[in-house]
């Protein structure tokens, strides 16, 4: 019995260690006073202030614009890449899948510095476009990783069956292949979107000219001194990412349950090592 209680206590400690900072953050985002040490009553004033801050709203605009365009572009590119990889011969296929995994495991700081070096090398002025390109770049491997298993699960000869019945290759792709791989595409899009909203390090290195996303904005504000408004903003970002993660993980569970024992995409937790 003692051991059972000890077990529970241990789990409690781990969870406390993991989530205490976030709980403090969320609680104090509703604090009535400016203090982050003393609780002086519930208030939504920091949230109101947040939405009145033009700088932050501009950052929110950039964050969402970049996230939508980058994840859409990465999804299209990644899907076609996965289609190509599927039809490759065994050896180049394995090589390409390994190459695809490297950027995923690469530290963000390396990706960020590398992109910065390249943009500088080709004389591209840093700003919205470079940040967008950077986000597309780091999101593509995740889309490939989530779409690739869907191609593998396609029934054998399905494309040829469609063409056999009179469909041109294009029609067959959109009417027969696309509906089958759609779950993977949507999951890939959601992961790309989450990563984009979440990203600080790579954005920090690849943006310029006053274009900032929310992460960078928070960082800049924090350097000027912690304001409760940061807590409110961080809370909202945490909740957004949490909801996205829940949707992604539910989709994957559903898919895994449907396919039984078959392999599920082995994705590193989105957001790991970034921010």
């Amino acid at each position: 019995m003692v051991s059972k209680q000890l077990q529970r206590f241990y789990v409690f400690l781990v969870l406390l260690f993991l989530y205490a900072p976030i709980v403090v953050l969320i609680v104090f985002s509703f604090n009535a006073s400016k203090s982050t040490a003393n609780w002086s009553g519930f208030s939504l004033q920091w949230y109101v202030e947040l939405f009145q801050d033009r700088q932050i709203m501009k950052a929110l605009y950039y964050t969402l614009t970049v996230a939508v365009i980058a994840s859409a572009a990465a999804t299209v590119i990644g899907t076609f890449a996965a289609y190509g990889i599927t039809n490759m011969q065994a050896l180049p296929k394995r090589a390409l899948q390994a190459l695809n995994n490297i950027p995923i495991l690469n530290p963000d700081i390396v990706t960020g510095v590398a992109l910065l070096a390249m943009f500088t090398f080709i004389n591209m002025p840093l700003g919205f476009v470079t940040m967008l390109l950077a986000h597309i770049t780091f999101a593509i491997p995740f889309v490939i990783l989530s779409v690739l298993p869907k191609f593998k699960q396609l029934p054998q000869d399905i494309l040829e069956a469609a063409m056999d019945l009179g469909a041109t290759p294009g029609y067959a792709f959109f009417k027969v292949i696309l509906p089958e791989i759609m779950p993977g595409i949507v999951t890939g899009f959601l992961i790309a979107f989450t990563l984009s909203v979440d990203d600080f390090v790579i954005s920090f290195f690849t943006t310029g000219g006053g274009v900032t996303n929310l992460s960078i904005e928070i960082y800049a504000m924090a350097r000027r001194g912690i304001k409760p408004i940061i807590n409110a903003l961080s809370t909202l970002m945490f909740i957004t990412v949490l909801v996205m993660m829940l949707i992604i993980s539910l989709r994957m569970d559903k898919d895994a349950a449907r396919k039984g024992e078959e392999e599920t995409p082995l994705l590193p937790a989105p957001g790991a090592g970034s921010g």
């Binding site: 054998q156 000869d157 399905i158 040829e160 069956a161 056999d164």
Partner: peptide, 10 residues
């Protein structure tokens, strides 16, 4: 038209 080995139904 073809009947495929693994059926290849949609």
């Amino acid at each position: 038209n073809t009947v495929f080995q693994k059926y290849a139904l949609f």
